[in-house]
Simulated assay, not measured.
Amino acid sequence: MINIGIAGIGFLGMIHYLACQRLNRVRVRAICEQDPVRLSGDWRSIRGSFGPQGRMMDLAGVSRYARLEEMLRDPRLDVIDICLPPAAHAEAAVAALRAGKHVFCEKPIALQPADAERALAAARRAGRLLLIGHVLPFFPEYRYVYHAVATGKYGRLLGASFKRLMAEPHWVPDFFDPRSTGGPMIDLNIHDAHFVRLLCGRPRAVQTVGRLRGTVPEWFQTQFFFDDPDLAVTLTGGVIRQQGRPFTHGYEVHLERATIVFDFATWGKQPVVATPVTVLTDNGRVLRPKLTGSDPVEAFVAELNEMVRSVRSQEPSKALDPELARDALLMCQRQAQSLARRRAVRL
């Protein structure tokens, strides 16, 4: 049995709690939350841009702590699952590692690369696993294209374009605070930075154009530059100010013998798959592979299952690798610098 303590009961803390209920030989033994209402099990105030909304939860048998240091002293806990605001991630991870716990931390690993390095160093000193929850590779649409590239099924990767945008989340009052949440570059589009890093390797430079809100990117387009000058990869991301399209994401990935396309958006409250994962082959065929896992919570179940596998085997996870998470954070920081300076920036 893997015993988990969840630190932070916001939207993702709730999603992780629900996902853990679907795993074998895994139990949430404790939660930590400063809000006494949520600590009591009343999660009705929780909302997010997808998936279930908050409800009353039966927390019978779950220990409840108002302070993280109290939960870290619980000897039953094997893993601390950090779902706190991004500004608290690195500090909480270091504290949990020093307490002898394995750490599974929601993205981003930190708000600053120096703090990410501090968490990595703490994991090495403690001899414990630090795993970072970048969930995108576990969504079936992204799992499919990653597998196609990794196996060389359709030949060499030639390039790709990614997009991920959301309506401004007014329910997160500090969303554009660079010291707290970091805005859409860190909170949203780090998903794509991580996926680009996983799929294409580490870029040598970025060039970003767009608009800022204060010092924080609001909407942007990025060109990633790699050692291979022919590898062309772009990203469009950020927020729009109107609420009619709460979320959209997708990609077009070019391979030697195929192009793979996916496009999804929520219009009002209606989710619309404009283009399900579609493979355009070099002999003119249009293929629609059958994918499983339409429930978005299932991606988090798969992600947490990978975390459990890593903890049980004491082996690292490629998808949850903290060094890749650090690189994704650095890629976001360099994109923000490029946008502000209006020129390309090296990593």
Rank of each mutant, 00 (worst) to 15 (best):
V62C: 07
S63G: 13
N3Q: 13
Y251C: 05
L84C: 12
G250Q: 07
E70V: 14
E218P: 02
G182V: 02
I186H: 02
R343V: 00
A116G: 09
G214D: 01
L111E: 05
A258F: 08
E303S: 12
H134T: 06
V209N: 04
Q243M: 11
A319S: 13
L198T: 04
C200T: 07
T275H: 12
Q243G: 12
P322M: 08
R213G: 07
G13N: 02
A66L: 10
A319T: 11
T281P: 03
H170K: 11
R25E: 15
A325D: 01
R143D: 14
T259V: 15
G201W: 06
P113R: 03
D35V: 15
D227A: 04
T278C: 11
M56S: 10
R202L: 14
D81C: 15
Q335R: 02
L235M: 08
F300S: 14
C200M: 06
T151G: 08
T208D: 01
P140D: 02
A336I: 00
P113W: 01
P178S: 00
R118D: 10
M71T: 13
N3T: 14
I46L: 11
D263A: 13
W171D: 14
V196G: 00
G182D: 03
R309K: 14
S45E: 09
R67W: 00
A274Y: 05
L320N: 03
H191D: 03
R47K: 14
L165I: 15
P178F: 08
E69D: 15
R334D: 00
T151I: 02
C32T: 12
I4H: 03
H249R: 06
A344V: 02
G100R: 02
F262T: 05
K290L: 15
I80A: 10
H16C: 07
H194V: 04
Y154D: 00
G133Y: 07
P36C: 09
I4Y: 04
V345C: 11
D327W: 00
S63L: 15
V272K: 08
P36D: 08
M185L: 14
Y251S: 06
R241V: 14
P178V: 05
R204M: 13
G214F: 08
